[in-house]
């Protein structure tokens, strides 16, 4: 009975799947054409200000907003201005370390939450992480500022007085919640039988983790860490509250310039950073693509990135 049902359900979609492309080729469905136009317009909208910035990075004038002539002076200015290069260095440094902190904390918590589903503390943990995600940055910023002052000066915890440490801590909060949800979403769908088999065959816990658990969670950890890195690189509100004069990250430098004068060098440095992220993105795509080929894992780049979105969305 079940066998018959399976045969029928397997056979049914085939004629439909064959018919569909033919029907599409014959005439263009106006609804589909409209959707495609809408999608392309949407992408143009998303790219528009980025293209404006790239175009204005070739502005030879003194003010960013008024285009004087074409040239690459702004790139020379940007790379020779130590305030700009220092700010970018601070941002990259903070992004790397806060991504690492979030990756470690989030991966551990994500695995624990997926594997111990149903325990009472998981509800509390989910609520806490959810609260982290729904707290606006401005509230985080204004509460961390006095907290760091209290810890650093009143309680004598001197490391907290360092601007870099403050930035790394502040930027890791949101990201570690994001990584947790991504890793949990990935691990929740996988059975534990492989690990149990390894345990039966006498593998010690460390070996089991390195050989089985970690490879399984790797796509989630990579996309989570990457997301954490970019969230940190992008962070303006929180950073402007906790940063100190000795460690000004790039967005805070730009925000300060908005209030005084915007120079084309800001657009030039942004264009360079865009190229950098594009190269990084291409590298990650390549790594994931090769990983898929090697392991035969069905999760491609799209699924991994989507897993990222799904992890956040799953909250």
């Amino acid at each position: 009975m079940t066998a018959v049902a399976e045969v029928v359900s397997d056979a049914l979609p085939v004629p439909g799947a064959e018919r569909k492309p033919l029907g599409r080729r014959r005439r263009i469905d106006p609804a589909n054409a409209l959707l495609a136009v809408w999608g392309v317009l949407g992408f143009l909208f998303l790219f528009f200000p980025v293209l404006v910035i790239v175009a204005y990075s070739t502005n030879t004038g003194r003010l960013l907003q008024s285009y004087q002539g074409f040239g690459f002076n702004a790139y020379v200015d940007a790379l020779s201005n130590s305030a700009i290069t220092d700010a970018v260095t601070v941002s990259l440094y903070v992004a790397v370390f806060s991504a690492l902190v979030s990756a470690v904390l989030g991966s551990l918590a994500g695995v624990a939450m997926a594997r111990r589903a149903g325990k009472a503390w998981i509800g509390w943990m989910t609520a806490l992480l959810g609260l982290v995600l729904v707290t606006p940055e401005i509230v985080n910023g204004v509460s961390l500022l006095p907290w760091f002052v209290t810890l650093g000066t009143d309680l004598g915890l001197t490391p907290v007085n360092s601007g870099l440490v403050r930035l790394i801590i502040a930027n890791s909060l949101f990201s570690c919640a994001v990584v947790t949800f991504i890793v949990r979403a990935r691990m929740a769908g996988l059975s534990q039988s492989l690990e149990e088999a390894a345990a039966d065959l006498g593998a010690p816990p460390v070996r089991r983790f390195l050989d089985i658990t970690f490879p399984l969670m790797r796509p989630a950890v990579i996309s989570g860490t990457l997301l954490a890195f970019t969230l940190s690189l992008d962070n303006t509100v929180l950073s402007s509250f906790v940063s100190t004069a000795d460690a000004t990250p790039w967005p805070v430098y730009v925000f300060a310039s908005v209030r005084s004068t915007l120079r084309p060098s800001i657009a030039a440095m942004s264009t360079l950073m865009l190229l950098l992220t594009l190269v990084a993105l291409a590298l990650v795509a390549l790594v994931l693509f090769r990983a898929r080929k090697v392991t035969g894992d069905g999760a491609g780049l799209a699924a991994t990135l989507a897993g990222g979105g799904g992890g956040v969305g799953g909250n």
Binding site: V50, I53, P251, V254, I266, S270, T277, L281
Partner: peptide, 9 residues
Amino acid sequence: VPYWTNFLV
């Protein structure tokens, strides 16, 4: 990609 260009920029 646009999302990974700085929010402020």
